[in-house]
Design a binder for these strands. Structure first.
Lengths: 234, 234
DNA sequence: CGCGATGGTGAACACCGTTAACTGTTAACG
DNA sequence: CGTTAACAGTTAACGGTGTTCACCATCGCG
């Protein structure tokens, strides 16, 4: 049952995360300190330990929240259109827009993660779960687009036997897509990620003043590879 | 002239940077603390201020060193072959190899850089200069490949008028390449960056166990877009 | 009513980057 | 050769961090 204290507690947790996010957008990741958050809502630093086990847990919680918020934004953006092909472009553009409007948050979500090479440490933190829900938006959409109109299979000699083996192994995870389609789906996500990271992390300023047009061209290229007929520029 | 003190000083600087890097590979970026570095070579923390103006300056110095080391490695790898097309693959594969062998260093160089939107703040820190020298390896090689055998121009309607305008503006910076070729050069670099970042930052583990085959396939695809005849897989 | 869980506090620990004042050593110059 | 100033290093200290501990108030339930 939900006692009154539970509601009060949930409200305080929300306040804490809101303050943390405010500090995040104001001064970047390094500005989200335990004491700073506590100061923001007139509390002492140790008080926060009643709500979060550690500083890392707090950040992990806001990471999860950010993933969910981003996911909701992308879903809303996607449902702007009913055409699945257009939805693929809407989601991609939506991710870029969100990243550019929230660079600090994007850096927190997709920047260099902890240098811990604990590969076998399958941390099921709320952040990871939220990241999975986020990724599912792309995966499901790509799968639906494929079902409606299968992608043109890339030539067999491009992928190679080993890659095909790996892709077929992951086939069931991708709604039973054939390896070529899985490859194209991965290409879509990889190129999208690289483009947005480069732009929001400022590693493209030396080459382009406004990466928007470049982004659109790349997106058209990717859509073409997926067999979508995308409208020409302008 | 080079006095004895200058040599001693240079040696100490090298020791400091070596210790910093040791800590970097051992415990990631956050482990490179001023006090930790000092402790590593039996010094007091304030002593380091005789050699570096601040903690940030120290890190910037090792960043510059890392860029130069990476550049030297790539140049050596590139000169393995005399064929320019092969060199493009060698440099790409070399960057991936270096990133996988030195993930902490790679994260320091290419992880989320400062969220400072100071576009007009052309900081000419040693790190930026070294980054330019690094980028020049790719730029020069791509330009040489283009001179030997021009890239197949992408269709005009793919790029769009605005992007073409932007690319022609940056044409002289790219050895006078036409906008289509500049676009393909950027595509080469963007996709390469995205691929390596995703793999080394562990954002590809959910989809692929060993991203090597996928990387090779992507590289062949890029090379094909550049008009190179690349050998099929296996 | 009473009692225990809950939420909050201040003090303290160990670490961090940085500065200031101080002390030897060492090179350069009259 | 002796003086002097720059250099390299120290300790002490300031403000900052995440975290733990002992303690206290308050609120809700049996």
């Amino acid at each position: 049952m939900e006692t009154r204290r539970d509601r009060q507690r949930a409200a305080t947790v929300a306040e804490i995360k809101a303050a943390a996010r405010k500090l995040l957008v104001a001064g970047g990741v390094s500005a989200v300190g335990l004491r700073a958050v506590a100061r923001e809502l007139g509390l002492s630093a140790p008080a926060l330990y009643r709500y979060f086990a550690s500083h890392e847990d707090l950040i992990s919680a806001v990471v999860a929240d950010l993933y969910d918020e981003l996911t909701a934004y992308l879903v809303a953006e996607r449902d702007t259109s009913g055409d699945l092909g257009e939805q693929l472009f809407l989601v991609a553009g939506g991710l870029r827009t969100w990243a550019l409007e929230h660079p600090a948050e994007f850096g927190l979500l997709f920047g260099a993660p902890v240098p811990n090479p604990n590969a076998d440490d399958h941390e099921l933190t709320p952040g990871h779960q939220a990241a999975m829900r986020f990724g599912a938006v792309f995966k499901d959409l790509v799968a639906k687009v494929y079902r409606q109109q299968p992608f043109p299979s890339p030539p067999e000699e491009l992928l190679g036997a080993e890659l095909v083996a790996q892709l077929t192994q992951k086939s069931e995870f991708f709604d039973g897509m054939p390896p070529g389609a899985v490859y194209l789906s991965l290409t879509y996500w990889t190129r999208l990620y690289g483009l947005i990271c480069m732009e929001v992390f400022g590693q493209l300023h030396w080459a382009l003043d406004d990466a928007g047009a470049y982004f659109d061209a790349q997106l058209r290229e990717i859509g073409e590879a997926l067999g979508l007929d995308c409208p020409p520029a302008e």
